[in-house]
Amino acid sequence: MTSTPGQQWRAAFTDSWRLRKTHEHPWWMGQLACVITGMAVGAAFVLLAALLSANLLNFQWWTRGLAMSMQLGAVIALLSCWSLRLLERLLPAERLARLNEGQDLQSLLVFIGIPTLCSGLGLWLVEVLQRWRLQGVLQLLKLPHKGALITFLFCGAGFACLSLWRARTQLRAQKARSQLSEAQLRLLQAQIEPHFLFNTLANVQGLIDYDPVQAKHMLDAFTDYLRASLLQMRAQDVSLAQELALVQSYLAVMHCRMGDRLQTRLDVPDTLLTARLPPLLLQPLIENAIHHGLEPRLEGGLLQLSARPLDSGLQIDIQDSGVGLARSRERPRRGHGMALQNIRERLLAVYGPDASLELTELPGSGGTLARLKLPRQHPFPSQDHD
């Protein structure tokens, strides 16, 4: 579900022609979008015919058929939309996803055959209603003019081909964005893990001789972190509870390293634990807060993570009482800023421009606030999760 009426209207115009179990807009909005689209196509056909016949300036010529063509376009669009909605109720979600790809004969029959048949049916229905209005006689079996019927069938097939091409182009672009996001996730892990891995193992090795109990505790926490991290790398999205479990495993390792210098506080309502988000979104922000904010401070400090609902989305705040943004930038470290840029690019690929990551310096005693705003509580709302 989108968070604003503007987003719902955009989804209604771009998403109504795709097959899916749930849409990001109310049903009536999708119907109205179909009517507007059909009327626009009908008007475009009349204007194109006027241009090709050199009658563009002859207003009496093309205005006679404008209302009729717009009415016909609206009827054809509604019939096509209703047919697609009926298919969504009859077919399982997996079959709908395969049809959307447009790779087989059945997809062509659905996305080209349905609009083509609806074009002929719409022309016949409108002519029947026109004759009934003018003559007062309902002649259901009389077919429309043969030339007009053929013209509309070809126009319907042509428009359906263009719509199918556009849908496949959008699907390929969405897959490319998803693959880019996944590649960026792998790159981010490749940048983070070696440094964290070697430092942790070095700490374990140093603790074995004089504090084997603490070394075992640190190794157990590190094992839990690696297990959770590897599981999340294979997932397209995870619940907030799973992401917090990874964060807590990471914090357990850092507690072993920093001791009492690191204090943590998590404030997340139980109602938000089922919200879903892209994997490994919070751990890099936690790591940045510790390495660039709390570790440089001799006495350490407090790290707080909180979450709250934001319209139909989610806001997550990660706040530290460390040295602050200004002093952190004075002490540049390897990879500083790379993880933040990676997260912003992943947010753009998954949510579009409605998601954001903002970093601000806290007044007074210092520290940094990383605020993550997600426009919805599921990155891929068309998918169902157990």
Results as ranks from 00 to 15, higher is better:
10 R>T: 09
12 A>F: 09
12 A>Y: 06
17 W>E: 01
21 K>V: 07
31 Q>C: 14
39 M>V: 08
46 V>W: 00
48 L>A: 14
48 L>P: 00
56 L>F: 15
60 Q>M: 02
70 M>C: 14
74 A>H: 05
76 I>E: 00
76 I>G: 00
81 C>W: 13
94 E>G: 06
101 E>W: 04
113 G>Y: 03
115 P>W: 03
124 W>C: 07
124 W>P: 08
134 L>A: 08
134 L>P: 00
138 L>V: 10
139 Q>V: 11
142 K>G: 02
153 L>K: 08
154 F>M: 15
161 C>K: 09
161 C>Q: 11
161 C>M: 15
161 C>P: 00
165 W>T: 11
170 Q>K: 08
171 L>M: 12
175 K>H: 15
177 R>V: 02
187 L>W: 13
188 L>R: 07
192 I>G: 00
198 F>T: 10
199 N>Y: 02
201 L>C: 10
205 Q>N: 12
227 R>E: 00
228 A>V: 00
232 Q>T: 05
236 Q>R: 13
242 Q>L: 07
244 L>Q: 10
245 A>F: 04
249 S>H: 13
255 H>F: 08
259 G>P: 04
262 L>P: 05
262 L>H: 10
274 T>V: 12
275 A>E: 02
278 P>Y: 02
280 L>Y: 03
296 P>Y: 04
298 L>S: 14
298 L>V: 12
301 G>Y: 06
302 L>P: 05
305 L>Q: 02
307 A>L: 09
311 D>P: 01
311 D>W: 06
320 D>Y: 03
322 G>H: 05
325 L>T: 13
325 L>G: 04
330 E>K: 12
335 G>P: 08
335 G>F: 11
340 L>P: 00
342 N>C: 14
343 I>G: 03
344 R>F: 02
358 E>T: 14
365 S>C: 06
376 R>W: 04
